[in-house]
């Protein structure tokens, strides 16, 4: 177990830096997590993060990267529904890195 500080609040994380409880998530902790990876969150990042949170809310799982790519393409347009675009936003792996910032558990068996 570890923890992250954001805006005066403490957030419990697991050993890989994923939030221990997704209900504790807010935008502040997402931004701090991104900063730790030298990543500045833009509107394009938030689109994907918000999408992941909605997906998890509905299905209780994080999508695999293939599923994420297809669903983003359908929702936000073909120019965004490809792995090149998503890897540019999240170079450590779109599902893995974006799920972390979205406060979701680490996706099983995906990048």
């Amino acid at each position: 177990m570890g923890s992250i500080e954001a805006n005066g609040k403490t957030y419990e994380t697991d050993e890989e830096g994923y939030l221990a409880d997704l209900n504790t998530w807010d935008k502040d902790v997402a931004a701090v997590m991104a900063n730790l990876d030298d990543c500045e969150l833009t509107e394009n990042h938030w689109e994907v993060i918000n999408f992941l949170r909605e997906y998890y809310e509905e299905y209780q799982i994080a999508p695999a990267v293939r599923v994420l790519t297809k669903a983003i393409g359908k929702k936000l347009g073909k120019d965004k529904g490809n792995s090149k675009y998503l890897y540019e936003l999240f170079p450590y792996g779109p599902a893995k890195q974006a799920c972390k910032y979205a406060g979701l558990p680490k996706p099983t068996g995906c990048v």
Partner: peptide
């Protein structure tokens, strides 16, 4: 317990 019944609806995406 976790209610995982909503997850069956994601199978189509997969």
């Amino acid at each position: 317990m976790k209610n995982f019944s909503p997850t069956y609806a994601a199978l189509g995406d997969f």
